[in-house]
Design a protein around this nucleic acid. Structure first.
Length: 430
RNA sequence: GCGGGCGUCGCCAAGUGGUUAAGGCAGCGGCUUGUGGCGCCGCUAUUCGGGGGUUCGAAUCCCCUCGCUCGCCCCA
């Protein structure tokens, strides 16, 4: 292909698609505002080191999926693969934590060098929240409810909330040793990927999709059993909180999540509409991350939802229910008026008339073609505008403009060009 | 990084070795030189993702390459 085209996995968003995007973003913004979260925007580019220290050197995201390069000053830079590390870095850099807990949200592109497939791109977009300094179990509940309610208000159905607790670092450390010891006895029965993870990231073996490995794991020691009493009680409190709010969930002991920084509550919201990449929203608690990045020991929780995946689910919902809330997100705004204009003077006056009406808040489509009236009306019709404004040299001569209703029966009316207020009035009465 | 499927006009799509690459939608123009929604007519791919090869002859066969797509891995 000699034609110029975008890089693999990098997708253009065209106006039609953005209609729904913006509706989703607006809804998210509203929910965040109501819950007291403030927006934060951080650079797309960070030092490579931030992600290595934050996400974990042993993870796939850091190990093989980062877009990294040396800049002209020979610094190693990386296009952010996720949002949390950057937000924490920014909070530390600006001393935000010394002002108490921070409730932050962000939206923007993330980059991971992976093979694209359904619901997965190299540049993709996340909307996320980070609550730094959130300690109690009820903050876990509140944050999960925020995600759940946002998705519900968008009209997404058929979602499943999956929940697990990873305990504390000590819990996991003990459990990891027990699990590795148990698995090493049986390592020849493991699939090759899992064998490799025995030394790099043993907990991820739990999440293996290999059937034989899963069968083997039936009898393996479980993380739930390894949790200390305090961790267990905390997890139960989170569950009680969700139940009180009427948010259904399913315990999934295999839900481990790929990034090192998670602790205690881990959750995912999945959809059956997405094929292999079913997770729409994922998150959890990361009590160790902030101190790991050089800040004060600060508990925190957050989540991120994948815009592209959410949009896929919304499209499916809109298909299933053309009158439902998901379908209404994609409504294309129709112009109040389509200005048919032809002739040298008419086109000059037309431009300024369109401008005046727009200044009054009306949506006006100005035909710029100069083609025959019939053609312009044809386009006016296609635009679905409620009114056609007709302006030819004859009208200009008389200082008038004609208003013709397009969607209903009705007489064409003639109004003085000087009477913008009267024109606006008429266009709005329809 | 590894597998499977696919690649004909902006979109959908017929064509699977023989002189002109269907059709539909959209676009543009005309019937209608100032009034839409219907209809009719015309125009819009020297070319079949790109390169090489086989052949008298290829969109149709072979090789390479690029891209898309689904899955694995992993994750949003």
């Amino acid at each position: 292909m000699s034609q110029l085209q975008s890089l693999r996995g990098m997708v253009d968003l065209l106006p039609e698609a953005l209609q729904r995007w913006q509706a989703v973003e607006a809804m998210a913004r509203e929910h965040f505002q109501r819950s007291g979260f403030g927006e934060i925007r951080t650079p797309l580019l960070e030092t490579t080191d931030l992600f290595g220290r934050g996400i974990g050197e042993g993870t796939d995201v850091v190990g093989k999926e980062m877009y990294s390069f040396q800049d002209r000053g020979d610094r190693s830079c990386t296009l952010r693969p996720e949002g949390t590390a950057s937000v924490v870095r920014a909070a530390l850099q600006h001393g935000l934590l010394s002002q108490g807990a921070q409730k932050l949200w962000y939206a923007g592109p993330m980059f991971r060098y992976e093979r694209p497939q359904a619901g997965r791109q190299r540049q993709f977009h996340q909307i996320g929240v980070e609550w730094l300094g959130a300690e109690r179990a009820r903050s876990d509940v509140e944050v999960i409810a925020l995600a759940w309610d946002l998705l519900a208000s968008l009209g997404v159905g058929g979602l499943q909330l999956e929940l697990n607790s990873l305990g504390t670092a000590e819990d996991r450390h003990d459990y990891r040793n027990a699990l590795v010891a148990w698995l090493e006895q049986r390592s020849e029965a493991l699939d090759p990927d899992s064998q490799a993870r025995l030394s790099t990231n043993p907990l991820r073996i739990l999440d293996s999709k290999n059937k034989d490995t899963q069968a083997l794991l039936e009898d393996a020691p479980t993380l739930a059993d390894a949790l200390a009493d305090a961790s267990r009680e905390r997890f139960e409190e989170v569950q009680r909180g969700l139940t009180t709010l009427g948010i259904p969930f399913r315990l999934n002991p295999r839900l481990v999540r790929g990034l090192d920084y998670y602790s205690h509550t881990a959750f995912e919201i999945t959809s059956d509409q997405l094929g292999a990449q079913a997770t729409v929203c994922g998150g959890g608690r990361y009590d160790g991350l902030i101190s790991q990045l050089g800040g004060p020991q600060t508990p925190a929780i957050g989540w991120a939802l994948g815009m592209e995946r959410l949009l896929l689910v919304l499209e499916a919902a809109a298909q299933a229910d053309p009158n439902g809330p998901a379908a209404r997100l994609a409504v294309i705004p129709i112009p109040d008026a389509y200005l048919v204009n032809r002739g040298e003077r008419a086109e000059t006056v037309g431009l300024s008339l369109a401008r005046s009406l727009r200044q009054q808040g009306l949506t006006v489509e100005l035909d710029g073609s100069g083609s025959a009236f019939g053609k312009q009306f044809k386009r006016a019709d296609r635009s679905c505008a409620r009114w056609a404004l007709v302006l030819g040299d004859e009208e200009v001569e008389r200082g008038e403009v004609r208003l013709k209703p397009l969607q209903q029966q009705g007489e064409e009316v003639t109004v003085a060009l000087s009477g913008i207020a009267a024109i606006v009035e008429t266009l709005r009465t329809y």
